[in-house]
Design a protein around this nucleic acid. Structure first.
Lengths: 339, 339
DNA sequence: ATGAAAGCGCTAACAC
DNA sequence: GTGTTAGCGCTTTCAT
């Protein structure tokens, strides 16, 4: 009934209940020792006043923010969304919250973001990839919290990592096509400077092709990452023009691969009859489209879950330095089976 | 060279520079009046010490967190990702950060989330949809910050809203098919209890069908939201069995619609020859798949941008109560054009 | 242009 | 099981 002059604090509850603020504070921590009736009275008073606990003050005093900072290249990407989902689930067990930022595949933006995120005093920071600006590296090296690089196996890890070799996974894919008898294999990717995982995948392609004594130069690069479905389709159109005798097309992601497939459908070019196609990342679309897409499962969600568990273990002191290598799995589907 | 005993504070910089902490504080605010040389010296000292500004303390003292809390049903959804992207861009102009939470299409989870987010003292809160638990409503009504409901036009708005009528948009879609001469139109959606936007769309379907004196009972419900591509395909398989004489299939989202299309391709059923198909949400896939998908553009990114701008205006005191209605746009594509 | 004092709301540390 | 005191790191406020 009273107009809300100011948002109520623990002191207000203490006054209303006739206890000290400290008791009120204790009553809000589940495990602390407070008389059951007192706790009940405090809870009621809080509810009545419309009290909302102030994490900001709590964090400052206890020097624990309950935040884990996370940078991902793009919010609009099912793979990274899965990783964040896994991380979020693992961390919510301990009531920790994710503070998320998007770098838009740009290391300078990543640097700005890291600086901004660190001001919030996260208890750990998770970054995607192992390539950063000098200054970002220094920030991460200096900061007194666990640093976890993901989705990559960094050449020089800053702290911990939970990742996989994008190059090796792409190498497995090439081996698969060579075993199928393909010789003229092309790669569709984005502007590689920005997307380090895309870069690694292309590197894996060229390395594997050379290892098989095959021509590694059939490369189509198409625009800024993330490579979209549309860009996959455009790239396929170009590929048909430039390298018409190609027998297999490997793409930097399933989205690009689906675009390539759609372009073939539009032109009534049979896949897998005329071209084999493969993607990367095991997106849902590759399971359902016709034909289904051969791809690499990188276990995106597991990357997040294991990163989250690692953070909890480190904060508990159970774990010190951990580097976790995920083994991606080749999934062979209709788009690379002889009709 | 010195081992970092403790993270440095403004007081450390003040000591090193021979000024008061207050001057250090001023030196970090761009617009405040500090001697240029002093500011320079302070910046250098900060860099040398590896100082990181502590937002937690700043927020507590100034009672401004710089956070906007946002709840979305799922992180892994291109539409909501677009909204968050637009919101994030609008807010970053004023250096505000998004604190994001996922409800997983569950109002109880939303309630928990809202309570958790409010503890961080956000300066505004954005929720997706207009349906909430009693307690969540009360929390939002009581809290002394702007509340914006999005992606819906709530029956009883709590504060502001930026949304559109899902039912009316779906009605436009039905009108389109009726104008094309379709009479036996079916609807594919998810378990509607959870997804209020899906529910509205289905309602729009039945209402419009009745308005045209057509049978509104061809409904296929398939599992928990978000409806995936796979579930769209399964639903189409069921539809073919249960309502084989259907002439048009409208789906709760483009993903479901693409799944339905893929199922037809798998069975070599011609689309648009045998069935017309339409989706909702203007996802990228609908632009590229073959045939392209008729859909509704809901301007997901604009919802975020306008919400962000609204928040900034309210915090500036420029704006008081605003309700913004977006007008979705019907996009007719190949999947509903006579071959 | 700069400084001194006080305090944001909570909890660590210690007392009883 | 509860209270007292002090202080987390910053910024508001008022002085000069």
């Amino acid at each position: 009934m009273s107009s809300d002059r100011k948002t109520p604090t623990m002191a207000d509850i203490a006054r209303l209940t006739g206890v000290s603020p400290m008791t009120v504070s204790r009553a809000f921590k589940t495990d602390s020792l407070v008389n059951a009736e007192t706790r009940e009275a405090i809870r009621n008073a809080a509810e009545e006043l419309g009290y909302v606990f102030d994490s900001t003050a709590s964090n400052l005093r206890s020097q624990k923010s309950g935040f884990v900072a996370v940078t991902i290249p793009s919010i609009n990407n099912a793979n990274f969304a899965d990783t964040v989902g896994g991380l979020s689930d693992a961390l919510s067990k301990r009531d920790m919250q994710i503070l998320l930022g998007y770098t838009n595949y740009d290391v300078d933006e990543e640097e700005r973001l890291i600086e901004q995120l660190l001001r919030r005093k996260p208890q750990a920071i998770v970054v995607t990839g192992g390539r950063h600006t000098q200054r970002a590296r220094r920030l991460l090296q200096t900061v007194a919290i666990p640093v976890i690089e993901t989705w990559d196996i960094p050449a020089e890890p800053i702290g911990h990592y939970v990742g996989f070799s994008n190059a090796a996974a792409m190498g497995d894919m090439i081996d698969h096509f060579v075993a199928l008898g393909c010789r003229r294999i092309a790669f569709i990717g984005g502007d590689v400077e920005q997307d380090t995982r895309g870069h690694e995948r292309r590197l894996g392609f060229t390395t594997a092709m050379q290892a098989h004594d095959l021509d590694p130069s059939r490369l189509i690069a198409t625009g800024a990452p993330p490579i979209s479905i549309r860009e996959g389709a455009n790239a396929m159109a170009e590929l048909i023009k430039v390298y018409p005798d190609t027998d297999a097309v490997v793409c930097v992601s399933d989205l690009a691969a689906y675009g390539a497939l759609a372009e073939c459908q539009r032109r009534a070019i049979p896949v897998p009859g005329r071209f084999f196609i493969a993607g990367f990342g095991n997106y849902e679309i590759g399971e359902v489209c016709v034909p289904t897409l051969t791809t690499i499962n990188v276990f995106a969600r597991a990357i997040g879950e294991r990163t989250g568990q690692l953070i909890l273990d480190i904060l508990d002191g159970t774990q010190h330095v951990a580097n976790i290598s995920i083994s991606p799995e080749l999934i062979v589907r209709g788009s690379s089976r002889r009709p």
